[in-house]
């Protein structure tokens, strides 16, 4: 099953109101999902329509003169795009982590490794999570929103199976235990609104946020 961001998220993304860690997750999804790319382009066209029919607010003439005077200096300097080719890391994450998912310096131990994505937006925490093939994350629930974008591999939990590319929004009330499929390590971008709450055994002790 392939999960997609909902229309509300896509429209916020396309209109420029999701320039944060959540936006990075949507951007990673759009890299591989043509349907959502198409929708997002449709919402951009909605923005174009808004611009077309809006009541204009004219600028003072000086603005035009000063802009025209800057044109010569501004010629021939197109901003280069980051190359689309390269490693397995999705393009939106390349400024923050290594180009290739296999070259990331994973932290932690055991079956479930992580790497903090150094992006700050004051609202979210973003991490890459690597779950060894065939293994499970301890049973846990979430305080607040968690979005998971699968970058490699696949996993399943009590709700269903999620294939590569899925964009999953986890219900805070749900207690679940994601398990990677046996063939490949599953790598996800996880964006949380707050810390995870672990509910299993020893992990209670190491979770400072548990009451």
């Amino acid at each position: 099953m392939m999960q997609h961001p909902d229309q509300t998220l896509l429209i916020k993304f396309a209109s420029g109101n999701l320039a944060d860690a959540l936006g990075l997750a949507v951007a990673c999804h759009l890299e591989i999902c043509e349907d959502c790319r198409q929708q997002s382009a449709g919402f951009e066209a909605l923005g174009g329509q808004l611009l077309d029919e809006i009541e204009p607010t004219p600028l003072p003439d000086e603005r035009k003169y000063s802009l025209m005077a800057r044109l010569d200096a501004a010629s021939e300097k197109p901003s280069p795009d980051r190359p689309a080719k390269g490693g397995s890391t999705p393009r939106p994450l390349r400024r923050f982590v290594a180009d290739d998912l296999d070259r990331i310096r994973w932290r932690g131990f055991g079956n479930s490794l992580y790497y903090p994505v150094p992006v700050t937006d004051g609202r979210h925490v973003a991490r890459l999570i690597r779950l060894k093939a065939g293994t499970a994350v301890p049973r846990h629930r979430h305080r607040g929103l968690e979005v998971t974008q699968i970058l490699q591999g696949a996993f399943h939990d009590c709700v269903g199976e999620y294939e590569t590319g899925s964009f999953i929004v986890t219900d805070p009330a749900l207690e679940h235990q994601p398990t990677a499929t046996p063939d490949t390590d599953c790598i996800c971008l996880a964006v949380t609104g707050a810390s995870l709450i672990f509910t299993e055994g020893l992990l209670r002790l190491v979770n400072p946020f548990l009451r």
Binding site: F13, D20, V26, S79, R95, V119
Partner: peptide
């Protein structure tokens, strides 16, 4: 404000895709 650690439009969209 913090150019290194915040999301830029380049991260979200390929400005001028091939």
């Amino acid at each position: 404000k913090d150019k290194l650690r915040t999301v830029s439009s380049d991260d979200l969209w390929q400005q001028f895709p091939a």
